[in-house]
Design a protein around this nucleic acid. Structure first.
Lengths: 159, 159
DNA sequence: TATTGTTATACTCTATAACTATA
DNA sequence: TATAGTTATAGAGTATAACAATA
């Protein structure tokens, strides 16, 4: 017998998946991107829950850390988030005491973003969790495939 | 001057992106997966709009074509879609006259899914549009990177 | 006039729970 | 008891449009 109903259901689902063909989808990068991303984000979000973050919030913190004093628009552009959505996300990070929004001196329309000391501590913990997650991804994909995928995908230019 | 306000805005956004660093994100596959997937899905959806489909609906049609008589659960499992959501998606395809739901003879709880003649015609057109899209992805990523990415990502096992 | 941050709205997607008919 | 399909609902994400302050 299986360890639990949920484990059994997962196994059955996997079995059914393997019995079904994908047709043309086998030749489409988008299908595999979506499939892998689904797993990667679930694993990363589960890991980051330990510091009350998710992938999006972590990415925002990391981007601010790498670009202190940057603006909401710049972070939104780098991460592909709508600037309208950034507001609520940054509100949350601010309420949690992880970031500060200061008036920019060069352009008083803009907010200069920065991490608080607490933000730096949480980000450091998050980076350790994400590094462990990244190792799981590499192991799951196969270390060689992981390296190839990272090398190939990182050369894609947005625009 | 730029060709239009929109083109100018895009260029400016790209410029700002290139001026911002990504920190640890540069080492994370998930970041690049999301970035590429964003572009790929937008391009594919734009292409499929010509036959009134999007990436999800196209994937469902292709999966049914590759597995005639398959069930809603099996398609949902293969594509990572919730079975609750499949209902409305299949309703749309059925209303458009592209698929049929028949009672399965082996298990009268299940629907045996199939394409209508019109569904086959539309899918054929969609496959041509998607093939052209796939070439754009390959050109944009670089043909070698594209091949490496497809080879690496396709070896990921879900479950 | 254009841009930054903000608010608001509508639509889509995700995650659940519960119901029905079957098994 | 469990599963296939369905309905309903709440939360998150996406896409837009509009406004105030500022450039």
């Amino acid at each position: 017998m299986s360890k639990s109903a949920s484990a059994g259901a997962q196994r059955d689902a996997a079995k059914q998946e393997s019995e079904i063909g994908l047709g043309e989808l086998e030749n489409h990068l988008g299908y595999f991107l979506r499939r892998l991303q689904h797993w990667v984000f679930r694993d990363a979000n589960a890991a980051l829950a330990a510091v009350d973050l998710d992938v999006i919030l972590y990415s925002i913190l990391e981007t601010i850390a790498a670009n202190p004093g940057t603006t909401q628009i710049a972070v939104a552009g780098a991460l592909g988030i709508e600037r309208a959505r950034m507001v609520a996300l940054l509100d949350g990070l601010q309420d949690a005491g992880l970031i500060v929004r200061a008036r920019s001196e060069q352009d008083r329309r803009a907010h200069a973003l920065g991490l608080t000391p607490r933000g730096r501590i949480i980000l450091k913990k998050a980076n350790a969790l994400v590094a462990a997650h990244e190792k799981r991804v590499a192991r799951r994909l196969g270390v060689d495939n992981y390296r190839r995928a990272l090398a190939a995908l990182s050369q894609f230019e947005t625009g």
